[in-house]
Design a protein around this nucleic acid. Structure first.
Length: 431
RNA sequence: GCCGCCGUAGCUUAGAUGGUAGAGCGCCGGACUGUUAAUCCGGCGGUCCCCGGUUCGAGCCCGGGCGGCGGCGCCA
């Protein structure tokens, strides 16, 4: 690899030092006998000045390059308050790796166009900042999971059936029969706890829902945990500790990138420390009714209701104890109130809403069969899953976190599609 | 699945009443001794999403189609 100095590492203190830079032309301005090139690489930007009087050959090369051309530049560092970063490089040599005639993305680009040229937009510092934050959130997650004794496992993506009753599956040909793309690793993680007790996975999940909202993608990255011997309250503690660590660590390591999107408005992120507020579904309904929202006990909270609720909080919070009939079949019935299940969602504040869905799982064979029948499904389709309740069944709990939803909240993005490299939505499969 | 909105140059768009498609940005050429997505002068660039209809004449009116966007439901 080329021995280069990163743009962001060029500081006024390096005055007089010779450096070699490699990157892309971010801005170019020709003024009289000078050419100003703002060079960009993965670290950030630095301005390079080519002067006709100083080095005519380099100046002529600099005049030729177009925006986003790849170049290698050699020069001398000079502190200068007029430079965007306080330091710049006096260009002495410019090697054009590939010249670009014109770059399609200019200042007046619509969101729609940026998605059409997503493969080119990814290089912009603002998009790169999102990807850095996403990377750091997962780095933090791995740090926490490792120190807390969780095993990473690698579940299948090609599956035979549904996890959620309602969610639709992408169907594909599998030799002489059909398979589906996984919409959750949960059932497989439940199988894995019998050997490993505390497991997690990061997989893409697929939902063939024609959802047109700021919180949905047809393909998203799903961080799922499942643990034996944990009840709902235990797994909620895991959730808040994990999310808190992810957020606090990212605040520490990615301050610059977060400020790009939130400026100084990081209060709710700082507030994300245990214990997160916990309210019951019953309390949530009371709050909503007192706010004049038309909702009755037993109804699921829609987007509007969830938004009203999240505006009541200034940190992520839990809603637990949902009515059984609005939740999935595998969730354990509340022994103290059979109308409810031992389920909890974690909602992000500021209108973002659900980022985690979790529950204690039904570990009793007969009850699980009954729930499957109640949902109008066939227990035969869940034979292996039911087996887990016949051979050393244990109380266990787990949850799934939507990584793009977490990123969207952390960076206050207006849509989860900005939190993924190449978003997949019902109408977008390209690039 | 449901409700709503939009397709004009590479991009962002203006085009009352139907009458020779206009601008800004980008790009090309020129000017400029320090620019901060510079400024100034000149130039290139159009299947007005597609098909059909009405009309002397359609970017505009009518019908159908295609594509995209916003929201609901569903969920992470």
């Amino acid at each position: 690899m080329i021995d280069k100095v990163y743009c962001a590492d060029v500081t006024p203190e390096m005055e007089g030092k010779k450096v070699k830079l490699a990157g892309w032309v971010y801005r170019k301005r020709e003024v009289g006998k000078k050419v100003f090139i703002v060079l960009r690489d993965s670290s950030g930007i630095v301005q390079v000045v080519f002067s006709k009087d100083l080095n005519e050959e380099a100046y002529r090369e600099a005049k030729k390059v177009g925006i986003e051309s790849s170049v290698i530049i050699e020069g001398t560092v000079k502190a200068d308050s007029r430079a965007p970063t306080g330091a710049e490089v006096q260009g002495e040599k410019l090697q054009i790796i590939q010249n670009v005639d014109f770059f399609p993305i200019t200042k007046d680009a619509s969101d729609e166009f940026l998605l059409d040229v997503r493969h080119l937009h990814l290089r912009s510092p603002k998009v790169a900042a999102i990807m850095k934050v996403k990377s750091t959130l997962m780095q933090a997650a791995r740090e926490w999971l490792l120190q807390d004794g969780w095993y990473e496992v690698f579940p299948p993506i090609l599956v035979t059936g549904a996890v959620e009753g309602g969610a639709t599956l992408f169907k594909l040909k599998y030799f002489d029969r059909y398979a589906y793309l996984s919409q959750s690793a949960q059932l497989y993680l439940e199988a894995a706890i019998f050997g490993l007790e505390k497991v997690w996975s990061l997989t893409p999940s697929f939902r063939a829902e024609k959802s047109r909202t700021r919180r949905h993608l047809t393909e998203f990255w799903h961080l799922e945990l499942e643990a034996a011997w944990m009840d709902l309250w235990d797994i909620m503690k895991v959730e808040e500790e994990l999310v808190s660590y992810m957020v606090q660590r990212t605040l520490e390591l990615r301050k610059k990138e977060i400020e790009l999107y939130r400026k100084d408005d990081i209060k709710t992120l700082k507030n994300a420390v245990p214990p997160f507020p916990r309210i019951s579904y019953d309390e949530a309904i009371d709050i909503l009714q007192s706010k004049g929202v038309n909702i009755e006990w037993g109804e699921d909270m829609g987007a509007d209701e969830e938004r009203v609720l999240t505006e009541e909080f200034e940190s992520p919070f839990f809603v637990y104890g949902y009515p059984k009939h609005i939740k999935a079949f595998y969730m354990k019935e509340d022994p103290e109130d059979p109308r409810k299940v031992l389920a909890a969602d974690m909602l992000a504040p500021e209108g973002y809403g659900e980022i985690i869905g979790g529950s204690q799982r039904e570990d009793d064979y007969d009850k699980l069969v009954q729930r499957i029948l109640e949902e109008g499904m066939d227990p035969k389709d869940y034979e292996w899953y039911l087996d887990l309740r016949k051979y050393g069944s244990v109380p266990h709990s787990g949850f799934g976190l939507g990584l793009e939803r977490l990123v969207a909240w952390v960076l206050k993005l207006d849509h989860v599609r900005w939190a993924t490299l190449f978003p997949r939505t019902p109408s977008r499969l390209y690039p």
